[in-house]
């Protein structure tokens, strides 16, 4: 261990000094100002008002990953305080920091207590500080309750911004103290626009078909899309990116494997079904992915009656629960397939 840390010094988390070619694109193309935020008009509009009016409510951003929640608040902070003051005015705590009740009581409270006056030219520098609680849904209920009074008491000097994926995991008293903004998955056009922009700037060639696969695979998650794009560009240095490698990167089960699975529904032979399941599990596909793609297939399937579809959906739901609880994938998928085959053939 000693040598692992030897010859090392504490570095700041500042990515500024990194040579641009070694920078991950997700960081490189992270929006620097409010105007660059893709989509999310409602939140952007309200926050832009805050830039001019010197006032800001407590904020709660929620929505699926990769929709720009953290980027938005960071961009807002940068525009409010500028690059210099941002260090003293913004406290960012995320799930990688210890955020038990103790920290809320001490660190957050101490930071919230201090008043600030210093200003810099060119930036509005309103007389408050911002505490960003990123990934707030992983905070314990106790820690959240400890925030309640703190938020109110120091509202003169401090604004809180809670960022989370699931608003239901934030306790009611906190949500009622904040202005809530839902971040929607990005619409397809916006994704296309961004991908085209990144492709142009990085000189990446991508087949039109692969772009639509990319958009489909990312499911409105811009970070995912850019991540895949960069990895794809690495894999196909100098060549065009093709759809199949995007699928592989996203962990999507290839259509031919899926159709072999769904074809097995029409079989009554245990050996046959177990052989196919064995094959698929040996290939290492994720059971969760198989379930979701099987569901997509099920809803669009033309041959099965609505009754049978409903029955299979029930099984899908049960198996999904078991998988979430950590049950063995092989057994669960085999069980699912046998039950589905039973439903289909009877």
């Amino acid at each position: 261990m000693s040598t692992f840390f030897q010859n090392a010094r504490v570095a700041s988390a500042n990515n500024g000094q990194l040579p641009p070619e070694a920078q991950p694109w997700v960081e490189k193309y992270r929006p620097k100002s409010m105007n660059e935020i893709a989509s999310q008009e409602q939140a952007v509009q309200v926050l832009k008002k805050a830039l001019t009016s010197n006032n800001l409510p407590h904020l709660l951003f929620y929505g699926p990953p990769g929709t720009g929640k953290t980027s938005t608040i960071l961009a807002l902070a940068r525009e409010l305080f500028g690059p210099e003051l941002i260090r003293s005015r913004v406290l960012e705590l995320n799930a990688s920091d210890e955020r038990g009740i103790q920290i809320v009581r001490e660190k957050v409270k101490n930071f919230a207590r201090t008043t600030v006056t210093a200003t810099v030219d060119d930036y509005p520098c309103p007389p408050y500080k911002i505490i960003i609680l990123d990934e707030a849904d992983s905070m314990t209920t106790d820690a959240q309750s400890a925030l309640r009074r703190t938020m109110e008491t120091y509202s003169k000097t401090t604004r809180f911004c809670l960022v989370c994926n699931y608003v239901s995991r934030i306790i009611e008293p906190l949500t009622s103290r904040c202005a809530k903004f839902r971040f929607k998955p990005l619409p397809i056009e916006k994704l296309k626009e961004r991908i085209a922009m990144v492709c142009e700037q990085e000189g990446v060639q991508i087949e039109p078909e692969a772009t639509s696969t990319l958009i489909k695979a990312s499911n409105g998650d811009l970070r995912k899309a850019i991540m895949f794009l960069q990895s794809g560009a690495k894999l196909h240095a100098g060549e065009k990116i093709v759809a199949s490698s995007i699928n592989e990167m996203a962990g999507i089960v290839p259509p031919e494997v899926m159709s072999s699975l769904t074809a097995a529904w029409y079989s009554t032979e245990y050996q046959e079904i177990s052989k196919i399941v064995n094959e698929v599990m040996n290939a290492g596909f994720s059971a969760e992915q198989i379930l979701s793609q099987m569901h997509d297939h099920l809803v669009t399937d033309g041959d099965l009656s609505a009754y049978k579809k409903a029955k299979i959906s029930l099984v899908l739901g049960e198996v999904d629960l078991c998988l979430i609880n950590g049950a063995d994938e092989h057994l669960q998928i085999l069980n699912l397939m046998l039950k589905a085959a039973d439903i289909v053939t009877h």
């Binding site: 990953p65 970070r223 995912k224 990895s231 990167m249 992915q289 950590g326 994938e329």
Partner: peptide, 15 residues
Amino acid sequence: STSKIISPIRSRCLL
């Protein structure tokens, strides 16, 4: 299996 990896982590990694 990727089933038990939360999606924010998955979206930050190359699978």
